[in-house]
C-alpha cells in the first residue's frame, strides 16, 4: 500500500492520529504539500461521500473521517500559503441562516468542501444577511452555501440573495442552498444557483458551480 493509499484509508477509518503521523512522514519524504490534497485527502473524502450516499456511512462515521482529514489539512494549510499550485477550488461562505441554530448538516458540508479543496469561511448558525454580505466582500468569496432546517427559517435564504443583489455582489457569487425542508423548486423560486440534497451532492454542486 502506498503512503497516499495508507493516508486515504486512515481518513476513511477516522484515525486522526495516524493521518497526522502519515502527513508528517510524507512531508519528511519530500512530498510536496500541494500533492497530498489531490492524491490523499480529496479521494478519501470522495469515498466518504460515496459511502454516505450509499448509506454505508452515517453522521458519526462522516464526522470522524472529516476530523481525520482535518488533521492533515491543519498541517498542510500553513505550508500552502502563496503556493500557486495549491490555489483553492473556490472560497465558500457557509452558514445556517438567521433564526436557525441547527448546524450539523452545515458543518458536514463545510468539512467535506474543505476536504475537497475549497477555502471555507464558516460563519456558524443564526447568521444575518448582512453578515453574509460582509463576509463575501471581505473574503472575496465566489460561493455562498446556506442551510436551514426549519420551514420558518428557509425563507431567510431569499433575504440573503436579495441582500447580495442589493450590495452588487450577486453576479460575483454563486448561491447554493440545502436543508431538510429545502427543495429544488424552492431553490429556483428564490433565485439560488443550485440545491444540494445532501453533503456529497453539495460537494458535486460546488465543484460544478465553481467551474462554471
Amino acid at each position: 500500500m502506498s503512503l497516499f493509499e495508507e493516508m486515504q484509508q486512515a481518513i476513511i477509518d477516522g484515525k486522526a492520529p495516524v493521518v497526522k503521523e502519515l502527513t508528517q512522514k510524507a512531508l519528511s519524504e519530500g512530498i510536496k504539500p500541494a500533492d497530498i490534497f489531490p492524491k490523499a485527502i480529496v479521494p478519501a473524502m470522495d469515498e466518504v461521500g460515496r459511502r454516505m450516499r450509499d448509506c454505508e456511512f452515517f453522521i458519526p462515521e462522516v464526522l470522524i473521517a472529516a476530523r481525520a482529514a482535518r488533521a492533515a489539512t491543519d498541517i498542510l494549510r500553513p505550508l500552502l500559503v502563496g503556493d500557486a499550485a495549491a490555489r483553492p477550488a473556490g472560497t465558500v461562505v457557509c452558514c445556517t441562516v438567521k433564526g436557525d441554530l441547527h448546524d450539523i448538516g452545515k458543518n458536514i458540508v463545510a468539512m467535506m468542501l474543505e476536504s475537497a479543496g475549497f477555502r471555507i469561511i464558516d460563519l456558524g448558525a443564526d447568521v444575518s444577511a448582512e453578515k453574509i454580505v460582509d463576509a463575501v466582500r471581505a473574503h472575496d468569496a465566489n460561493l455562498v452555501a446556506m442551510s436551514a432546517l426549519l420551514t420558518t427559517t428557509m425563507v431567510n435564504m431569499k433575504s440573503v440573495i436579495e441582500a447580495l443583489a442589493a450590495a452588487g455582489l450577486r453576479e460575483k457569487v454563486k448561491v447554493m442552498v440545502g436543508g431538510a425542508p429545502v427543495t429544488e423548486s424552492w431553490a429556483r423560486s428564490i433565485g439560488a444557483d443550485g440545491y444540494g440534497k445532501d453533503a456529497p451532492a453539495a460537494v458535486d454542486l460546488a465543484r460544478s458551480l465553481a467551474a462554471a
Binding site: G14, I59, P60, L63, I64, R67, D103, I104, N107
Partner: peptide, 10 residues
C-alpha cells in the same frame, strides 16, 4: 451538543 455526541459514539 449533537456534533459532539456523534463523535462520542466512537
Amino acid at each position: 451538543g449533537i456534533n459532539t455526541l456523534m463523535l462520542d459514539f466512537y
